[in-house]
Amino acid sequence: MSDENKSSSSPAGGEPTATRSAAPMWIVVTTLVLLCIGGYYFDQHGGWFDAHVYAPYSSAEKLEAYQPQSGAAAALARGKKTYEAVCGICHGADGMGKPAQFPPLAGSELVNSAGVNRLIHIPLAGVNGAIQVEGKDWNLAMAAMGAALPDEDLAGVLTYIRTSWGNKGGEVTAEEVKKVRAELGGSPQPMTGPQLMKMPE
């Protein structure tokens, strides 16, 4: 051990000596700069170890943005889901309603109408009292089931209703729902059958 000490401090023979000295400043600075560049690059392209993020997607947000949403099909699928959760309990997953309790939506003239004004009023305001659907009398209160749904979701549900089970109605847009909602105001009273029929389609 002492030999080692001696040899490293020996000045004789021009042998190189190991001494303790600080690393040159340029190495420190270069290393730090490289670390910064590397860290920035990782942040921009690495996806932070997310198991779902592969190149060419550079982050979870980018990947999310490229998830396919083919407009009409996606809205319809969403509408079906919402229908089954909110409306299907009474009106049935097949839209046939329940005899003498809940009117059917399949084939209903209110659903298949040319305009959608009346149809949008029903879930937004609710219905109370007698109403005629498919030539039969129904007498039951329906709460404003759609009032709590966002415009897009309610539009999706109504579009689903109007295009399913053999119904031949068209699309209902979120703008149309929004317009009716604005007309109805904050807490609308349930509509009666005659009131509904007096409205434009």
Partner: peptide, 9 residues
């Protein structure tokens, strides 16, 4: 099509 490799079928 998967979440991590999306494309429209």
């Amino acid at each position: 099509p998967l979440y991590e490799a999306p494309f429209t079928p």
